[in-house]
Every structure is written in C-alpha cells, then in structure tokens.
C-alpha cells in the first residue's frame, strides 16, 4: 500500500511532506527511542512515535522509512516540517494513542 491509503483508511492528518504520499509502506514500527528505530525498523516502515524534533527526520531519511505517524495530537517542530517537505517523507498526525493507531495499522498491513 502507499502512504495515501493509510491516510485515508486511518483518517490521518497530513502535517508535512505531502509530496511523498505515493511512497510505499510495507511494514510498521512503533518506538520513541531513535536508536531502536535506527537499529531495527525496515525500509518502507510507517514509524509511530511521539517524538517531534528534527532528528526523527534524520532517522526516517537514513532508514528510508515510508512515513512518520505522530500520536496524541503531537505536531512536528518547524525544522522537522522543513526537512520532511525536502525529503518528501510525509509526517502524519492522529489524536489516537500509539497503542490504538499501531493496532489499526497492524490490521491494515495484515490484510495486504
């Protein structure tokens, strides 16, 4: 599936990086520890986190993740948005908790 499919199905807000909505998403990863994501997330993963600072984009870019999903209404910082737009890796927002959105995303990916 592509990022746009997830946005639509899970009713997410596109906070930045809209040019990357056609990126492929092949898995998911939920963690607030950057080293954990760096070490263990796969390329093409949708990353569920509450971290909003620019370093999440460094990790997403280096790991070639599909998208970032910020939970509980968290919003990316301005320099995070800037890099997301540049790299065309979307940051998406939800009011749901990491637990809830991860469950929904997991079900969606299982149905692929």
């Amino acid at each position: 599936m592509i990022v746009a499919d997830i946005v639509k199905a899970l009713n997410l807000e596109v906070l930045s990086g809209a040019k990357g909505l056609q990126r492929e998403v092949t898995s998911g990863y939920t963690s607030d520890l950057l080293s954990d994501v760096m070490g263990f997330a796969d390329a093409g993963a949708a990353w569920v986190t509450l971290q909003t600072h620019k370093n999440v984009m460094a990790v997403a870019s280096l790991k070639e993740l599909g998208a970032i999903i910020l939970v509980k209404g968290f919003k990316p910082e301005p320099d995070t948005i800037e890099q997301s737009d540049e790299e065309e890796i979307p940051i998406l927002g939800t009011e749901l908790s990491a637990f809830e959105i991860t469950g929904k995303l997991y079900n969606m990916l299982q149905q692929e």
């Binding site: 607030d32 520890l33 080293s35 760096m38 070490g39 370093n55």
Partner: peptide
C-alpha cells in the same frame, strides 16, 4: 527525552 541515550548506540555500532 529526545529518544537518545537508551544504551543501544554502541551495541548497534558493533553489530
């Protein structure tokens, strides 16, 4: 708080 300092860096490098 930024999500660093979980004690995973050096082991990640080594592996």
């Amino acid at each position: 708080e930024m999500g660093f300092g979980a004690g995973m860096g050096l082991p990640n490098i080594q592996s």
